[in-house]
């Protein structure tokens, strides 16, 4: 009896090993490119928006490529590009991106889309920031010492938030300023718990708003634009990069089909699109320096 149990256990493990081995070859495609795998390094908020879950299957079906989405913090995403450990980058931190471009680690930086950040806070708005320009809104919060929850994780959102405080000439203090060290969704939940203010990208907000008691208080300011660029990692500097794959992905994002999918994404679920498709434009076109 015991031997049967052992045999059963061994069989399960063997099956597991075989199944794992067979894990690679799924999904036939029309054309089989030489190097099928593309490593796309992007940010957690991009992945969490769900956009890639909609775009990638279409891309993979058409091109025969298999995209591995490595979603990490902005810093790590860019670093992977700088080390040649990724093939293509999709991030939203323009200043940092330009630095990477300057080192020659990445090439072909192209504007793909943008969405915006919004400030959310409690419905009763104790600091009275509703519909204020960003600078005065932040000043009000600092003076009233109302709770402000920051992502505090060095992400693109966090960098944007820090830049806004700096622009307003303010230094947030411990006590009312709370650093969560967490992803966007969790940060929003924390802000909701504590009935505080926070900066969030619209996509995440739309996904979670139905469970929130907070509401959008400040939006539309040009400084709140969250701009996404795609960059190919330089295959001349890093020979192991999948150049064809990176190019194909970048092309797809900027193709009319890709752009259309981006522009439509979220409409059925949230009633409004999460992103604005900007293929072919430059940052100047969006009113940003």
């Amino acid at each position: 009896m015991k031997q049967k149990l052992w045999a059963g256990l061994a069989a399960i493990c063997l099956a597991g090993a075989l199944l794992l081995a067979g894990c690679g070859g799924q999904g036939a495609a029309k054309t089989e490119p030489a190097n099928k795998d593309i490593i796309l390094s992007t940010t957690t908020s991009t992945r969490d928006s769900g956009l890639l879950d909609a775009l990638l299957p279409v891309f993979e079906q058409e091109s025969g490529y298999k995209v591995k989405v490595i979603a990490v913090g902005t810093g790590q995403a860019l670093k992977m590009g700088e080390q040649g450990e990724a093939d293509v980058l999709l991030v939203h931190a323009p200043e940092a991106e330009k630095k990477v471009l300057a080192t020659g680690a990445a090439v072909n930086r192209k504007l793909v889309m943008h969405n915006d950040f919004v400030f959310v806070g409690p419905k009763n708005d104790p600091s009275g920031i509703a519909k204020q320009p960003v600078d005065s809104a932040l000043r009000n919060i600092a003076q009233a010492k109302e709770t402000f929850v920051s992502r505090g994780d060095d992400s693109g959102t966090h960098k944007m938030e820090l830049a806004l405080w700096k622009k307003a000439g303010l230094q947030p203090e411990e006590g009312w300023y709370r650093s969560a060290g967490a992803g966007m969704g969790q940060t929003l939940k924390i802000a909701d718990e504590r009935q505080g203010y926070t900066l969030t990208d619209r996509a995440t907000w739309l996904a979670l708003q139905k469970n929130m008691t907070l509401t959008i208080l400040v939006e539309g300011d040009p400084s709140l634009l969250n701009i996404y660029h795609v960059m190919e990692v330089n295959s001349e500097k890093f020979t192991k990069v999948n150049k064809a794959g990176a190019q194909a992905f970048s092309k797809f994002l900027l193709s009319s089909k890709g752009q259309q999918m981006i522009a439509e994404f979220g409409k059925d679920k949230y009633g409004q699109a999460l992103f604005f498709a900007d293929g072919g434009k430059t940052e100047a076109d969006l009113g940003v320096k």
Binding site: T44, D48, A182, G183, M184, G185, Q186, L188, K189, A207, L208
Partner: peptide, 10 residues
């Protein structure tokens, strides 16, 4: 699990 917590999908 970690992913969903980060997204706030408790």
């Amino acid at each position: 699990t970690v992913l969903e917590v980060g997204k706030g999908n408790y």
